[in-house]
Simulated scan of single mutants.
Amino acid sequence: MPEKPSSAEQFLVDAQVDEAVFQLCPTYRTMLIVAEGLTPAPSNEVSDELVDAAEAHAKKLLAERPVEEIAHVAAWRDAYRAFGAKPQRTRNSLESLLRRAETGLPRVNALTDIYNAISVLHQVPLGGEDLAYYQGPARLVRAAGNEDFDVVANGVEMLEHPDAGEVVWRDDLGVTCRRWNWRQGRRTGLSDATESAFFIFDALDPMTDDAVHTAAGELADAFRQLGPHVRVTGRMVAAS
């Protein structure tokens, strides 16, 4: 069994983005956040206020232009095409949330609601994982095509495999998120019991580093309201 990281800081230091990903999209950057000491909670005043603001923001944006013409959504559609995905069929997580926001974002629990709301408010794909179920470091790579990806389809647990060349997040046991930021796996998914979580902000031009840091700061501020002992650690990874 792979060893667990000794600390959140070590987990973030060990996280990697493969050079092949930067060759595909040179402006790609990711802000990685670990939040520890979370107190699991249902949707509450903190998360509801953020979700309400996110829904209003999305409606305003979509009144001005179609979702596919929003700058960061369009950039991610181009990135998907670069590794062979069809963005009209497999939408990045930001676009998926924006399309749902007009009729109401999902309300799951405080942790999930907060990170979904931050994604919409700051127009950035943002993934959340339960750190306790990671084995080895997080890596963003181009898949060989034989990696395991565990999902539930029609109520049945099953293994899938990414396409060769697909951009995926993975750990030592398999894929944790397919097609960069399209679909998260079951094994590392957040739950109502999550106390330590790992978050991935995916940024491309025209999103600036300052905008990414602002979004991460607001996420951290919101999480600190979920428990008296919350500790947030972060690291930005970009092409050298």
Rank of each mutant, 00 (worst) to 15 (best):
M1D: 09
A8N: 13
E9D: 13
L12V: 06
L12W: 07
L12I: 02
V13K: 14
V13A: 14
D14G: 10
V17H: 03
D18W: 10
V21M: 02
C25V: 08
R29H: 07
R29T: 04
M31F: 07
L32I: 05
V34S: 11
V34I: 15
A35R: 05
G37K: 08
T39G: 04
T39R: 15
E45H: 08
V46L: 01
A53K: 15
A54L: 01
A56D: 10
K59D: 06
R65F: 00
R65H: 01
E68P: 01
I70W: 06
A71L: 11
A79H: 09
R81Y: 00
G84C: 06
P87E: 10
R89Q: 09
L94G: 06
S96Y: 11
L97K: 07
N109H: 11
I114D: 05
A117F: 02
S119W: 11
V120C: 07
L121I: 09
E129A: 14
E129H: 15
L131G: 05
Y133W: 01
P137F: 10
R139V: 08
N146R: 02
N146S: 09
D150R: 14
V151T: 11
V152M: 11
N154W: 03
V156I: 14
E157N: 14
P162V: 09
D163P: 00
A164I: 00
A164Q: 12
E166G: 13
E166K: 11
E166Q: 15
V168F: 10
W169N: 05
D171P: 11
W180Y: 14
N181Q: 09
Q184N: 09
Q184L: 15
G185T: 06
S191E: 03
A193D: 00
S196Y: 02
A197F: 03
F198L: 14
F199E: 09
D205E: 13
P206M: 05
D210M: 00
D210Q: 12
H213L: 08
T214E: 10
E218T: 03
D221L: 12
F223H: 01
H229Q: 15
V232G: 02
T233L: 13
G234K: 09
M236P: 02
A238W: 01
S240W: 08
